[in-house]
């Protein structure tokens, strides 16, 4: 069974059709997905700006991360859950959307970037914790992170325009 077949089957399950054709449920999920951006990307931006040395430079980096990342994580969980429901509402349409594919790739890169950062530079945070401007490697990771979140937002917004532009 190919992914295509699987998503075709998924899109014909009663709950998928129900969500797709609902009067309000889909729009509620979409609203939750978009507005959680303020919590999730909002806190991630503050963390990245601290790591770039552009915000809260008098606060130790580890304090900014440890106090804000739990909130980021909660926001991410809501984003992933609501995003999964938006996908479930029209699996084939999403799967065949070029911006959706780009968004998933950028999301994977953003996660990998965060993971590598925590495994490498953040292990030695004690060394640069109080530096107003952290070392170059840290700033690079933060800049990559910001660029990836921006592309994820962009791709998400452009998903609505695939039909209009290409079909």
């Amino acid at each position: 069974m190919s992914l295509f077949d699987f998503f075709e089957w998924l899109g014909n399950t009663p709950w998928s059709i129900g969500l797709h054709e609902s009067r309000y449920a889909f729009l509620v999920v979409l609203t939750v997905h978009v507005l959680t951006l303020t919590v999730f990307v909002g806190t991630a931006v503050v963390v990245d700006l601290r790591l770039l040395g552009a915000m809260l430079t008098r606060v130790p980096a580890s304090e900014v991360l440890s106090r804000l990342l739990p909130l980021s994580g909660a926001g991410l969980a809501v984003m992933l859950a609501s995003g999964a429901l938006l996908f479930y509402a029209a699996p084939l349409v999403r799967y065949q959307n070029v911006f959706f594919r780009f968004k998933m790739a950028a999301l994977a890169l953003a996660m990998a970037n965060a993971w590598v950062f925590h495994r490498t530079a953040y292990r030695h945070v004690a060394v640069w914790d109080r530096d107003p401007v952290p070392p170059r490697g840290v700033r690079l990771a933060a800049a990559v992170s910001l660029a990836l979140w921006a592309s994820i937002i962009t791709a998400g917004r452009m998903m609505a325009y695939q039909d209009y532009w290409f079909n």
Partner: peptide, 14 residues
């Protein structure tokens, strides 16, 4: 406009 939303969200939440 959404980029602005993210920055505002972070600054307000802090």
């Amino acid at each position: 406009h959404l980029f602005g939303l993210a920055v505002i969200g972070g600054a307000v939440l802090l």
